[in-house]
């Protein structure tokens, strides 16, 4: 009996631990200064998280935005169209994608995606898309939000696909048959009968993917450039919160409040992810009954 307390205990321990250790900075600065301050100079006592929050937000949005359309289509394909044989191929592919470690994704991003952004996407955008907001090319390298987003999109794909697939599997076949029996095509059946049923679950699956992207550290850190600025374009470098923690944890001991600031960053991550996850999980549980 006692052992089932462990998961709850661990959540509280992590939350309370981070809260306690980031308390010095939370009591020294107002929340507004910390969250919306845009200058990060720990040696001068300036701890503005805004550039990092915006960076995290953009990388996540780009990653999720790139991942969602193909992932939804793939899960619908696997759930509604594919034969058992195709599914038996898809399963190991998704398992392997999920098994590849973040650092390997990072290496791939470094070797393939960053050069791709630098030599292909950036010139293309400069030539054709520069008039659009967030599409200006100011940085000479491919280390950018876009590169981080592409890597993240592939990383969260197996999670999103498998969650959405399971949701589709909860819809009883009778409903599909009822629609097909009066001569609807497969797609008409999916769009008008199945999709309205599963929409909340799909959104929950996407939120789960977003929270995975939000906290991803190593792979993103390797391709996103890590410049503490408020990015103005997808081709700018950014500095997401997880990367901030990972890059600076070694050498913060000498500066007052620096470690509290970094743990505060971890606390912000944790808070957002707890909210995302609890909401998404509650929605999904309703489906799985």
């Amino acid at each position: 009996m006692v052992i089932t307390l462990l998961p709850l205990f661990l959540i509280s321990a992590v939350t309370i631990g981070l809260l306690l250790r980031s308390w010095p900075i939370l009591s020294a600065y107002s929340l507004k200064e910390l969250l919306f301050g845009s200058i990060w100079k720990p040696s001068q006592g300036l701890f503005g998280f805004w550039p990092f929050i915006v960076g995290t937000f953009w990388v996540t949005v780009v990653g999720v935005g790139l991942a969602v359309p193909p992932c939804l289509l793939v899960s619908i394909y696997l759930a509604e169209y594919a034969h058992a044989f195709t599914r038996s191929i898809a399963k190991p592919v998704l398992d392997l994608l999920a098994a590849i470690p973040p650092v390997v994704y990072g290496v791939w991003g470094l070797l393939a995606i960053v050069p791709f952004v630098e030599t292909f996407l950036a010139p293309f955008s400069k030539r054709w898309l520069a008039f659009l907001p967030f599409m200006a090319v100011n940085s000479p390298t491919g280390f950018s939000i876009l590169a981080g987003g592409i890597v993240l999109a592939v990383m969260i794909a197996p999670l999103v696909i498998s969650v959405v697939f399971e949701i589709f599997a909860t819809v009883p076949n009778d409903l599909r048959f009822a629609s097909l029996a009066i001569g609807a095509t497969r797609w008409e059946t999916i769009r008008r009968v199945v999709l309205p049923q599963v929409l909340p679950g799909i959104i929950a699956g996407i939120v789960l993917g977003a929270s995975r992207a939000f906290g991803e550290t190593i792979a993103v850190l390797m391709v996103v450039g890590n410049v503490p600025q408020v990015p103005g374009s997808l081709f700018d470098a950014a500095y997401p919160l997880p990367a901030l923690i990972a890059n600076n944890y070694g050498d913060m001991m000498s500066i007052p409040l620096y470690d509290a600031a970094l743990l505060c960053a971890a606390l912000i991550l944790l808070g957002v992810i707890l909210i995302f996850n609890i909401a998404a999980t509650l929605v999904l549980k309703r489906f799985m009954k």
Partner: peptide, 17 residues
């Protein structure tokens, strides 16, 4: 078209949502 011409009344009623 076949299924439009040949309607089916299922074993259990399955109203669409």
């Amino acid at each position: 078209e076949v299924r439009k011409r040949v309607g089916l009344l299922a074993q259990r009623p399955t109203p669409l949502p």
